[in-house]
C-alpha cells in the first residue's frame, strides 16, 4: 500500500487502530494495521488500557502525500495513542499540498487519549491537516494538537489544520488554523499569532462535565482554558517555542484529569 507512485501523486497510506473492551476491564487491539509510512505499535501500558505508539517509517508527509490515521476506541475500551517523534511537514517535488487526516471514533463508556508529538511545518512545505473526533454520548476524549511553525530559526511552511469534535452527533468544536506564507492576511498579526511560533490545543471531553464543567481560566499571558458549549473544555496556548506550549498543556492536563 505504501507506494511512491511518482512525483505527482505522492504516497498514500493509512494506519488503522481499533481497541475494544475485553469484558473483564481490559482493552484488546483487534486491529493494529500499518500500511504506510505511519506504523502503529503496541507499547507497554501503565494501566488497564492499551497504549499505541505511532512510529514514522519515513520522514514525511511530503508535498502530494496523503496519510491517514483511523483510530477507534470501541465500547468499554481505554486507548492511548502517542507518537515516537514529532511529525515533519516537508516540501516535496510535487507542487501539491500534502494531506494528513486523523479520524478518531470513541464509543460509549470508552476513552481515547490522542497525544501525538508536535507537527513541525518546515519551510516551503504545504500541509492540510484535518482531525475529526466522533464521540458517543458517554465517551471521554483527551486530544492534544501542537503545531510548530518552522524548525529553530526557520521560516514556517504553509499549514492549515482543522479540528472538529462531535459528540452524540452534535458539533462541539470546529476550528481551523491557517498560517504560513500564502495564508489569509493577518495570520501573524496581533489578532492571530503575533509572531508566536508554537500553537497548542488540548480538548478534554468528559461526560461528568455535564454536571461540573471547569470555569474559564488564564494559564499565563497567552494561554487560556475555556469551557465549550457542552461537557468539554479547550485549552489554547501560543508561545515563542514548542517547549513552553507543552509545559502549559501538560500542566492543564494534570489539573483536569
Amino acid at each position: 500500500m505504501t507506494v511512491r507512485t511518482g512525483v505527482a501523486s505522492g504516497v498514500r497510506g493509512t494506519a488503522r487502530i481499533t481497541a475494544r473492551g475485553d469484558g473483564r476491564g481490559g482493552t484488546v487491539l483487534p486491529v493494529l494495521d500499518g500500511e504506510g509510512p505511519i506504523v502503529p505499535r503496541r507499547t507497554r501500558s501503565a494501566g488497564a488500557g492499551a497504549r499505541v505508539t505511532l512510529v514514522g517509517a519515513m520522514s514525511g508527509p511530503l508535498g502530494g502525500d496523503h496519510l491517514t490515521v483511523e483510530a477507534a476506541s470501541r465500547e468499554g475500551a481505554r486507548l492511548q495513542i502517542g507518537s515516537a517523534a514529532a511529525t515533519l511537514a516537508l516540501p516535496g517535488q510535487s507542487k501539491e499540498a500534502a494531506r494528513y487526516d486523523v479520524r478518531l471514533t470513541v464509543g460509549d463508556a470508552s476513552e481515547l487519549h490522542w497525544l501525538p508529538e508536535q507537527l513541525i511545518s518546515v519551510r516551503d512545505s504545504d500541509l492540510r491537516v484535518t482531525t475529526r473526533a466522533d464521540l458517543a454520548a458517554s465517551a471521554s476524549l483527551v486530544l492534544r494538537e501542537e503545531q510548530v511553525l518552522g524548525r529553530t530559526g526557520e521560516e514556517a511552511g504553509r499549514l492549515t489544520s482543522r479540528l472538529t469534535v462531535r459528540r452524540a452527533g452534535r458539533l462541539l468544536l470546529d476550528q481551523e488554523l491557517s498560517c504560513g506564507p500564502g495564508a489569509p492576511g493577518g495570520w501573524d498579526g496581533p489578532a492571530v499569532l503575533a509572531g508566536h511560533r508554537a500553537i497548542g490545543q488540548l480538548v478534554i471531553v468528559r461526560p461528568e462535565f455535564d454536571q461540573h464543567r471547569p470555569g474559564p481560566a488564564l494559564l499565563g499571558e497567552t494561554a487560556s482554558l475555556t469551557p465549550l458549549a457542552g461537557p468539554a473544555v479547550l485549552v489554547t496556548a501560543v508561545a515563542p517555542d514548542a517547549l513552553r506550549v507543552r509545559r502549559t498543556l501538560d500542566e492543564a492536563l494534570r489539573t483536569l484529569t
Partner: peptide, 8 residues
C-alpha cells in the same frame, strides 16, 4: 448538551 442558554 448546550449549557449556555436556558429556555424561558
Amino acid at each position: 448538551m448546550h449549557l449556555d442558554h436556558s429556555h424561558d
